[in-house]
Every structure is written in C-alpha cells, then in structure tokens.
Design a protein around this nucleic acid. Sequence first.
DNA 1: CTGTTAGCGCATTCAG
DNA 2: CTGAATGCGCTAACAG
Lengths: 342, 342
Amino acid sequence: MRGRSTIYDVAELAGVSAKTVSRVINNSSLVAPGTRRKVLAAIAELDFHPDSAAKGLRQRRRKSVGLVIPYGSDFVFQDPGMWAQANGAHRALSERGYDLVLAVPQTKELVLHELSRLTKNRTVDGVILYAMEGVEALVKEFDRLKIRYVSLSVCYSGQDYNFVETDSSYVSHLATRYMITQGARRIGLIREPEGFFHADKATAEEGYHRAHLEAGLPVDRSLILAGDYSIVSGYERTCQLLRDYPDIDGILCMSDPMAMGALRALREHGLTPGVDIDFVAGDDFPSTREIWPGLTSIRTPLYEQGYQAGTMIVDYIESGQKIPGRVLKGELIVRQSVRSLH
Amino acid sequence: MRGRSTIYDVAELAGVSAKTVSRVINNSSLVAPGTRRKVLAAIAELDFHPDSAAKGLRQRRRKSVGLVIPYGSDFVFQDPGMWAQANGAHRALSERGYDLVLAVPQTKELVLHELSRLTKNRTVDGVILYAMEGVEALVKEFDRLKIRYVSLSVCYSGQDYNFVETDSSYVSHLATRYMITQGARRIGLIREPEGFFHADKATAEEGYHRAHLEAGLPVDRSLILAGDYSIVSGYERTCQLLRDYPDIDGILCMSDPMAMGALRALREHGLTPGVDIDFVAGDDFPSTREIWPGLTSIRTPLYEQGYQAGTMIVDYIESGQKIPGRVLKGELIVRQSVRSLH
DNA sequence: CTGTTAGCGCATTCAG
DNA sequence: CTGAATGCGCTAACAG
C-alpha cells in the first residue's frame, strides 16, 4: 500500500460505487446502515483521507479561513491579546471543520493584494480581519471585491453586520466611573489608536466622557492621548501626561502592553499605583497581573470575541447571508491600584 | 465579468493556448517575450488568479505548511516566544510562496490524528512542530507515516536532520559561568520541561553543569528544577527553592514567562534581584524588560529560529532530501540583576 | 437507497 | 517555442 488510496480504492474494497463512498464521507443520510458500515471499514483499512484539493475544486469551497494580521508589525505579533483572539477563532473554525491560514501583509498597501490573492485563488473561503488602522477604507474595498470577511471591530459608519466587537466605551465608562467614585478628579486616558473602531460608537473616549458627564465633572480633552497598543507608546504617553499635567491623579490605560510601559514610566517618576496615583490597566493578562500585586484592570472577553468571529465567518460563508454584528461587554476587575476615597 | 475567470479565458483573450498561459504563470523560460507580455496583459485585465485547488490537485503540492502548536494549552498560546518563532516561520514561508496553516491539537492524543488528516488529505505539504513534551515518540511515528516535518527542537537520540534548535546548553553555560564569575555559589536553575529536547545534548542542565565543572565547583542537583514554561511554574519553583535552600544566592530561569512568576516570588519574599539575590531571565522579551530596570537576560534568536525552520521545511518539501539540523547560539545580555563580586 | 456520467481548473504528457 | 489531448480525485446532476 504505497500511493495514497483514492475513493475508488475504497469503493472497490467495499463493493460499492465511488458515489456511495462520497455519501458516507459527507454524512449523507441516504445510505443504508449496512452499506455505511462496510464503507467505513474499508476507509479505516485503507486509511483513506479524501483529497482536500479535489474536494475543494469540485465544491468550490476550501473549508478554510484566513486570519489577517496587519502590517507584520512586531508589537502586534507579540500582543498576547491578539493570540487570545486567534486561539478563540481557531477553536471555532476547527469545530466547524475549517482550517485557519495566517495572512500577514507586510505593509498597509499589501493588505488588499494579499487578500485578493487568498480569496480569488480560493485558498480561503473568507477572512477574519484583526482590528487595524484604516479598516474603514479597506473594508469598503472588500465589499466591492466581494471578499467575505468578519472583522474584530466595527467597520464603517452605518455598517451593522459582520463584526464582533468588544465595547471599549462600555469598559472605559466602567473604569472611569469607578475611579471617579473613588475620588479621582484628573484622570489621564491612554486610549486605543485612531481608526481602529468606528469613530462615534464604541471608543474608550466616549465612555470616559460619559462617566464624567454623569458625575457632573468637566472633561479636559488634553488628558486623552492615543497610544498605538505598543509598550513604548504607553511609556511615552504616560511621561507626557506626568510632565504636562502634574496634577493628574489617575491613569486609565486601554491595553496591557501599553500598561507595561505606563507602569515603567510611573516607577521612573517614583510613583506607586494605588499609593501615589490611581491606575487601571487594560487586558488583565496573566503576565501583567504578575508584575503588580493587585492591579485593578479592565477585562474584555478576547478569546470569546475570536470564537464568535470564527463562528460568524463560517455562518456567513455557508449561508451567504450577512450576520448582524455583535458587541461583547467586558468587566472591571477591582484590585488595589486605585486608592479608596482620597 | 462575473464568475472568476479561468486559464481558458486568459488564453482566449491573449490569443494563445491554455498551456502557454500556464507556462507564463509558472515562469517557464520557454515563452517568447512578446507572447509573455500579451498573456500578462490578459491576466491583469481579467484579474486572473489560478485556482489553488486545481493547481494543487494536478501538482500534488498545496504550497502550504502546517504549524503545530501542542495541546491548545493556553499558556503556550500566550507565550510571546512562540509567536516570535511563528512570525519568523511565516515570513520564510511567505517568501517562498507557501501559506501557513495553524494546527492546534487539543490533546496529546490528537496530535497524530490531526497531523495525519492535514498531510494525508494534502491540506499541507509538511509541518513545523513546535517543541512539545513527548516529541521523541511522536516524531518516530511521523517518520513511519512519512509525514514531512521540521521541528523546533532536536527530536530523538541520533537524529541529526530536520530540526532547528536554539542551544539551551550554550546559553545556560554562558549565564551560569557569568553568575559564578560574579560570585554566586549556590545557583538555582529553573529549566525547560523534561522531554522538550533530546536528553543529552542541548539542555540547560548540561550547560549549568559544565560551568560548575570548569569553575571547580560542585553541582547540587537538587537546585535544578524543571518548569513547564508557564508563569505559575516559575512562581512555584522559585518558592520551592527559597523555602528548601535558604542559602541560595542566584536563580537562572530559562524562559521569561517563568521569570515573571519567579520575580513575583522573589518580591513576595522581600528579595530584590541584583541586591539580595542574583537573577537571570530567559528570553529578553520587551515586556519582561519593562518590569525590571536592567534585568540581565539570556537572549535566543527565536524569530531567526522560526525563519530557518520555515526555510528548512520548504527545502525538504521541494527537494525530498532531509536537511542537516541547525543549532543557533544565543547570547547573554548583561544588565543589573546580577550583583558584582559579592 | 444506489450507480453512471460528466467536469471542476489546471498542468503533464507528447507532438509538432 | 507552442498546442491537443488527457486525467488529477472528487461530487453534482441525473437517472434508476
């Protein structure tokens, strides 16, 4: 038994036609139990695995989905949050019988090129887009090119399908309100980059505003700075806040990598979270929890977000129907880095 | 122009035969320049992308490689080191025209199953195996099943091909020798898990031993503990060392996630690295560097390792010849967490 | 419930 | 340098 066996070998061994084998493989109900058993035995004996290329060619479905990670930027690649999402997406796809192929366009300009290659040559049936700058424009192109996608953020104004988003606004509101309740009055916000989410709906800035409004507090927009999710941006924004606004009494940092940088900046300024300043971190990664005893933190369901994106893209591929977008909530984990009633 | 165009559409538009188009696509040299130009123009005009399934069916090559991540264990998924390797592997594959598909068997038992599916049904032409417990046994199976693989660790005793390894022994020797030179005498080693590397060659334990021998120092094997690369294992092993051997004056920790846990343990015991105890960390990840000002650290070329693995599996697939294994060296980054001459 | 026929889109013969 | 015929392994469409 050297060359791999084909469906005909199985058919012959089982004493049926190839089509019947095909029916068994694809769980068609229209097969007599006895026949099915014979076929399954032959499949097992020959260790037959249907050729995915032949199947894909015939059915015009590859049963695989691309995960698009933007720009090959190394800090994105190192963000454990992305891998939590990837993990969830992979699990969902795998449960539905889909493979996950990685796509990592090296520049912004290559995103479209790489994606049309993967979809047009039918390597993948659809893609999951990791949130990235400039999604809005990209995604309009995708619609035009009929590239099937689901994105990990909302895409453009008015679009209300094919995305799974964690509500940045919701958690930032939660955190800001908590900090205010505890007595903070001048809270710096290190938010997500511009252009990652649709501008009006779900940004951290919105929740931050809302919490201030509800508390009857003025908002100083200069305390709001955009990071780029990198460690170094967290460091720099924090230094900037500390330098320009010495009266600042709290910092809310929307991602953990940025929080790593922020914590270093605080340390260098001799400031201890929970003692000299309030601090809330962004992702509640296990590795971040290690570095500070009791870091109060936002927690968003990243694995779940990926999982839902995986489910959604498969539903879309198989039904051809766009799927209503979903927004996941997240929570605030209270520990000790926000002072009580100062 | 609705349904995608095929090679025949291109042929017709260019006024040549399908085979000539095929030659152009595959860079066959035997095409007249003028003909080539006409064909390329037609390809561009029709936005033609050769169907990868049809191509794969015909050529029995999918131009894709699986990256196997063991057991879906979440701490593995969160290890930035793995993603540095994955990033390198992806880049190499992409340069060679290969796609990368993720394989994440959920249990040890499923590894073989998942891999035979992917290879037998020709979804991938070969796989890159992330280091995992039990590789030795697995890999013998792979040989039997003729699954083409390259592994990110050495595989079994006597095997000297198809792996890219970072020399754990080399860097642990470097670090241990340095610590001894600086005055440490009772050094705890938190090493990689059992069974990740071939037992005799390239383990951290070997380098640790060698450094002690060279310095004429006795080795206390009870100071050597295996972690499992998780944060919590670093924490627990460190606590264990501190409890059982109060005279310990240094700790060498072979990975950064374990170092995160170790640093927490030290902190909880009131010990400051570089002041009360010597400490060397394992990966020099940016995020780890943040948490301690000046953490002396091993640095192994993980991206490079992944890149070479990608190159190697493609060479293997395309030549059919096993490739001699490669061992990468790594270095020690000296900062301030090891005391000078105490 | 099962089999026959045909063809998915390409590249590999083998001739020109 | 170019083309015509053939089939990779599977399943849709249509019988029976």
